[in-house]
Amino acid sequence: MAQMIDIAKEFGYRIRSFHHGVEAYKIADLLARDSISASIWSDWGGFKMEALDGVKANLPMVHRAGARAIVHSDDPSGSQRLLQEAAKAIAAGRQIGIEVTDDEAIRWVTINAAWALGLDDRIGSLEVGKNADVVLWSANPFSVYARPEKVWIDGTMYFDRSDPRQQWRTDFELGFVPANGGTR
Rank of each mutant, 00 (worst) to 15 (best):
M4I: 10
I5N: 02
F11H: 07
F11Q: 14
G12N: 15
R14V: 11
I15N: 09
R16E: 10
S17D: 05
H20V: 08
A24H: 14
Y25V: 02
K26N: 05
K26E: 15
I27Y: 11
I27Q: 11
A28E: 07
D29I: 00
L31M: 10
D34Y: 15
S37P: 00
A38K: 09
S39E: 06
I40R: 11
W41A: 05
G45F: 12
G46R: 11
K48E: 14
D53R: 14
V55Y: 04
K56V: 09
K56D: 09
A57H: 13
A57K: 03
N58F: 06
V62Q: 06
V62C: 02
A65P: 02
A67M: 01
A67N: 03
A67W: 12
D75C: 12
S77D: 13
Q80F: 07
R81G: 01
L83E: 04
Q84E: 11
Q84D: 11
A87K: 13
I90H: 07
A91M: 13
A91T: 15
A92Q: 08
A92N: 08
Q95F: 06
I96K: 13
I98L: 06
E99F: 06
E99N: 08
V100H: 07
T101D: 05
E104S: 03
E104R: 11
R107M: 03
R107I: 00
W108R: 05
V109C: 04
V109G: 01
T110G: 01
N112V: 05
A113D: 02
A114D: 02
W115E: 04
W115C: 01
L117F: 07
G118H: 10
R122A: 05
I123M: 02
G124W: 05
L126R: 13
V128L: 12
G129V: 09
G129P: 03
G129E: 06
N131Q: 14
N131V: 08
N131P: 00
A132R: 14
D133G: 03
V134I: 15
V134D: 08
V135Q: 04
V135T: 08
L136S: 02
L136D: 05
S138E: 10
S138G: 03
A139Y: 08
A139T: 07
P141F: 11
F142T: 10
S143V: 01
Y145P: 00
A146F: 11
A146R: 10
R147F: 03
R147Y: 07
K150M: 12
K150Y: 13
K150A: 07
W152R: 09
I153G: 00
I153M: 09
F159W: 13
D160W: 07
D160F: 08
R161Y: 07
D163P: 00
P164W: 12
R165Y: 06
R165P: 00
Q166N: 08
Q167M: 06
Q167R: 15
Q167G: 07
Q167N: 03
R169Y: 11
R169T: 13
R169K: 15
T170A: 07
D171R: 03
F172D: 00
E173F: 06
L174M: 10
L174E: 13
G175W: 05
F176T: 09
V177R: 12
P178M: 06
P178H: 13
A179T: 12
A179Q: 10
N180Y: 11
G181F: 04
G181L: 05
G182P: 04
